[in-house]
């Protein structure tokens, strides 16, 4: 674009001219224009329909900018720590590495278990809100509102000490997975319901007109579209699930956060105990973002 080579002032002028040509109303003042331009640059990247080849061209710029961001963040951290004058004593924490690692494994185990179970619950209650059975609809509504409206901490306590106790569930890990699944399932149900609702009624009418049965309509028309739309919020919910599992420490499940807290109590090396914690959670949540981005690409159909 030739515009790039112009001085900022000139560029504004040309912009103004273009703007004046396109609209009948008088051109806005240049400061207003600049603000509009700034806003567009900030948030409104143009979407090109063929984004893949373009992205390849920009690989160098991407690497450079990524490096820049990393450097900036590292610099900020370094500055903070230098002001603190904190001496790291990693040796103390290293002694407890097995405890930390076991906690990490426990968190993975609980997360995987509740990821699967909560997906089942979420799909079931998401669809149940459209059930023909009235009581099931009401039950789903109650479930979602109560779970989303109360603190997880309270849910864990009540589930473990009241419900699991009454049902004779002895194993606290099972109880932990179940309560996390119930909690996360309520959010997933809402995400899935919204996704299904977003498929327009005309499409469901069309499916009916071409003679698809109800299950076929879900399989061939609704689900393929819902998947692309719910993947991003699902990824967010799964990441939350992993982090929220740290609350299970109150029923004495030795998961990652609990392990870090114990290491801290034993070594008094707070940062050395908690920095690995942050890194460990990132290690779990980043693959989820990555995976969903890839799935999104695979399922996306809008050209």
């Amino acid at each position: 674009m030739p515009k790039k080579n112009l001085s900022p002032r000139l560029r504004d002028q040309t912009l103004q001219e273009q703007d004046g040509l396109q609209r009948k109303n008088p051109p806005r003042s240049s400061s207003q224009l600049r603000r509009g331009h700034f806003f567009r640059a900030l948030f409104l990247r143009p979407v090109s329909p063929d984004s893949s080849p373009r992205q390849k061209d920009n690989r160098g710029i991407l690497a450079f900018n990524t490096l820049l961001v990393v450097l900036l963040l590292s610099g900020l951290m370094w500055f903070g720590f230098s002001r603190l004058q904190y001496t790291f004593m990693w040796e103390n924490v290293w002694i407890y590495r097995v405890n930390l690692f076991n906690g990490f494994l426990m968190t993975i185990l609980i997360s995987l278990g509740s990821l699967l179970l909560s997906t089942l619950l979420g799909v079931f209650f998401g669809l149940a809100q459209r059930s023909r059975i009235h009581i099931l609809r009401i039950f789903s509504r109650f479930y979602i509102e109560i779970i989303r409206g109360t603190p997880l901490l309270v849910q864990i306590l009540i589930f473990f000490y009241v419900i699991a106790n009454a049902l004779g569930v002895e194993n606290r890990y099972t109880a932990g997975i179940v309560v996390m699944s119930i909690f996360s399932g309520a959010y997933l149900a809402e995400i899935i319901r919204a996704g299904v609702d977003s498929v327009g009624t005309t499409q469901i009418e069309t499916a009916k007109a071409i003679g698809l049965t109800k299950p076929q309509t879900y399989r061939f028309v609704i689900f393929p579209q819902v998947i692309t739309r719910v993947l991003p919020p699902l990824a967010g919910q799964f990441a939350s699930l992993i982090k929220d599992s740290s609350l299970l420490s109150i029923i004495a499940i030795k998961e990652f956060t609990m392990a870090a807290r114990e290491v801290n109590a034993n070594t008094f090396s707070t940062l050395e105990s908690y920095i690995p914690l942050a890194a460990g959670y990132l290690l779990l949540t980043i693959p989820i973002s990555f995976l969903t981005k890839r799935l999104e690409k695979r399922f996306s159909y809008e050209t």
Partner: peptide
């Protein structure tokens, strides 16, 4: 309904399927 054809004002086609897939879907599934 399986033996008659119906066309609406607009938005007849499923947006996640290509033109060909739209035509093939009822043929194979119904």
């Amino acid at each position: 309904r399986r033996h008659i054809g119906m066309v609406y004002q607009a938005y007849n086609l499923f947006p996640h399927l290509t033109a060909l897939q739209n035509i093939v879907l009822p043929l194979t599934q119904v």
